[in-house]
Simulated assay, not measured.
Amino acid sequence: MQSVVYTRIPRLDPALIARASRINVADLHEGLGPVVGRQCLMQPQMRALFPAARICGQAITSFNFPGDNLMLHAAFRVAAPGDILVLTNGGSPQGALWGEIASYYSRIRQLGGAVIDGAMRDTLQITEMAFPVFASCVSVSYPGKRGPGAVNVPVVVSGVTVNPGDLIVGDADGVMAIPPAQVEAAVRDAEARVAKEAEIKRRLDEGQTLYDVAGMKSLFEAAGIVEIDAVWSDRT
């Protein structure tokens, strides 16, 4: 296999990325709708290293041979400030793809974070430096540096196809990869959802019930829910 590195990705408007960075993953997920939202959402084992970790930036993808992380260093060569390094070896625990030095260097380079479908290590040191990393597993398994692999090609990461330039967003709830063509609509609809929830909170603060504010009456009726003013054991 010939290893290959593509040096460029399609670039989004920085202002659009900034808008997305202010929105939680859950709201962006729902903003995408029930089909696309599920297609973009990585599996639950892709978790934040520490609860406050947040990422929002474009994907620099890196496919690595299991047990090897040579292509991480190729990805570093083409990543720009704010980019998210998205690494996979197919999810294998062999050979940690990421560690303390990679995080330290990424912070110097002002990268936006890392998503690792495979093993990472040095979790305490990375947490202390507060560099946002998401990973599917932790292992101190030592990686080789031989290749083969590729950078900035489509990769499958924790159940989601990630293309170079996809918008990667992550927080304590999970990680999503949003295709550039879907980002504007996702952000617009998520912002509307955030505004709607702010109005719900305002009404709750005024003393209204969640049953009324959320319009549960019609949903209860549609579901055929019957309320009985009694203790269940009294009817036996």
Results as ranks from 00 to 15, higher is better:
T127Y: 07
R77L: 02
Y6W: 08
A214Q: 15
I168L: 08
V175E: 07
I168T: 05
L28Q: 02
Q94A: 15
G147P: 09
R77A: 03
E30T: 11
L41K: 11
S233Q: 14
T7K: 15
A59E: 04
G170S: 11
P164V: 01
D171Y: 06
V213K: 11
G144C: 07
D122M: 06
I200G: 09
I225P: 06
V183P: 09
T127S: 12
E128R: 13
I17G: 12
A114T: 04
I116H: 09
D27M: 11
K145A: 12
L41Q: 10
E30N: 10
F134W: 05
I55V: 14
G159A: 14
G147Q: 07
S3V: 05
F63N: 06
Q58W: 02
R19Y: 08
G57C: 00
L28V: 00
I116P: 14
S218D: 11
Q43R: 13
D68I: 00
S136N: 07
G90S: 11
S3L: 08
L16T: 10
L49D: 09
A230F: 06
V157I: 11
A192F: 03
E100F: 15
Q110Y: 08
V226G: 00
K196N: 11
Q43E: 14
G165W: 01
A172I: 08
G33D: 03
W232E: 09
G67L: 12
I225D: 06
L124R: 13
V133K: 04
A48V: 00
A52F: 01
A53W: 00
P10D: 07
K217F: 05
A177W: 02
M42C: 14
P154W: 04
R109N: 08
A26N: 13
G224D: 04
R107L: 04
E221I: 04
L124Q: 13
V133P: 02
Y6F: 13
I60Q: 04
G159I: 13
D122N: 09
A102L: 03
D212K: 12
G82D: 08
I23E: 00
Q58Y: 00
K201M: 15
L41N: 03
I84A: 03
P164A: 02
G224S: 04
V175D: 08
D166G: 05
Q2S: 15
I178W: 05
V86S: 04
D68N: 03
A222Q: 14
